[in-house]
Simulated scan of single mutants.
Amino acid sequence: MVVLNRARNVVFLSTYPPRECGLATFTQDLVNELDEIKLINKPRVIAISNGDYRYDERIIMEIWQYDRDSYVKAAKELNETDTELVVIEHEYGIFGGDWGDYILDFIDNLHIPFITTLHTVLLEPSDKQKEIIKVLGEKSCRVVTMANNTVKILTSVYGIDPSKIEVIHHGVPYKVVEPREKLKERYGFKGRQIISTFGLISPGKGLEYGIEAIAEVAKKHREVLYLILGQTHPCVKKEYGESYREKLEELVERLGVEENVRFVNKYLTKDEIIQYLQLSDIYMTPYLGRDQAVSGTLAYAVGYGKVIVSTPYPYAKEMLADGRGMLAEFADSKSLARCINYILEHPEVKSEMEKRTMALGRTMMWKNVANQYARLFIKTIEETQLKGDTLVG
């Protein structure tokens, strides 16, 4: 029997802070915003853990990432609760097994309807990667993706029913911040043109091309300062140590741009990210991955109305359309430098780009995004319950 217009019980399966992970931050931001929506009871979380974390009261159980049995156990325990919908936040490297196939053990034992949110959509997946998304797509009530460019990939490559696919932007936290020039002064950057890149550092980020581009720009604009914000990705650090960062530091020294490039080697809080974005004149993503469908860091930059210079991966092309930034060639520092120089030398163009980016960015604030998710959750719960129950007023 379905009773409409009452608060619904939703549980997320994801990583969660204090684990340092973009997915954890995403989930925390979303559930915090959903707390404000009366049609959803305070969402709970099953945390995927790879270490000993001290979680808050939102966590109702943990799954040990590399323990296959814990996925089965968690699903069976969840079946005994009043949970009406499970939301699986999917990213490669989060779940145990071959490309994270332990998640399939979880859904095989789950008797509750679920939605899958895909944080990575690969154009050319391996057989195993393809199989996992295909099965999730078949068994999910809905599949959420964060960019329009992925819809065709999900239908053609993974065979997901297009009627199941929902596009909801990556959310961005809203915070009132000081004006750019005031923040620059506070951080000791007065009179500098700030270019920034933030996120967990790994070789795929193409930061060496960003540094080479800054060396080129600095020949004409000595006031330019490139901030590389963030620590080395934990998985990269575990396997290779700090070798990539050390190579970048050596490159800075070799090019003689120590005054134009600065590393902020730490895991940034949301407040720090927002402040660094606010004081930036240009946000740069020189990424090397040609198939990157979504980028949380780029979403943040759009959310705060930044002029963006990026390589043309699919998400950047979508976000920077209609004059919201400039696209450079992959692995091409001279192309990046030309874009940066053009923006710095045409302040009226920069100002117009900022206005256009901010217009899109406003739609990506977490309040708007959480409302879209809440509507989707309620609709999905009601549809699944109506299939087997008699509707009563």
Rank of each mutant, 00 (worst) to 15 (best):
I201C: 07
Y174L: 11
V176N: 13
R222M: 00
I194N: 00
P234R: 12
K190T: 13
G230H: 08
Q231R: 01
F189E: 03
I228C: 00
G204L: 12
V177Y: 14
R180K: 15
Q231T: 06
G210F: 07
V217L: 11
Y187G: 13
R192K: 15
K190Y: 13
A218D: 02
E178I: 04
L229W: 06
K182I: 15
K175D: 08
V236N: 06
F198C: 07
E208Q: 14
I228E: 00
F189R: 08
C235H: 03
V217Q: 13
G210Q: 09
G206W: 13
Y209V: 01
H233E: 05
P203R: 12
V177H: 14
T197K: 01
I195N: 06
E212S: 05
P179F: 06
L183C: 11
E208K: 11
F198T: 02
H233T: 02
A215L: 04
I195S: 10
C235E: 04
G204R: 13
K220G: 05
K220T: 05
Q231H: 02
E216R: 09
V176A: 13
Y187P: 09
G230C: 07
R186A: 15
C235S: 05
L183E: 13
T197A: 00
L227W: 10
K190R: 15
H221P: 00
I228L: 02
R192A: 12
V217C: 06
A213G: 01
C235R: 04
E181Y: 08
G191C: 13
E185R: 10
Q231V: 03
L207K: 10
G199W: 07
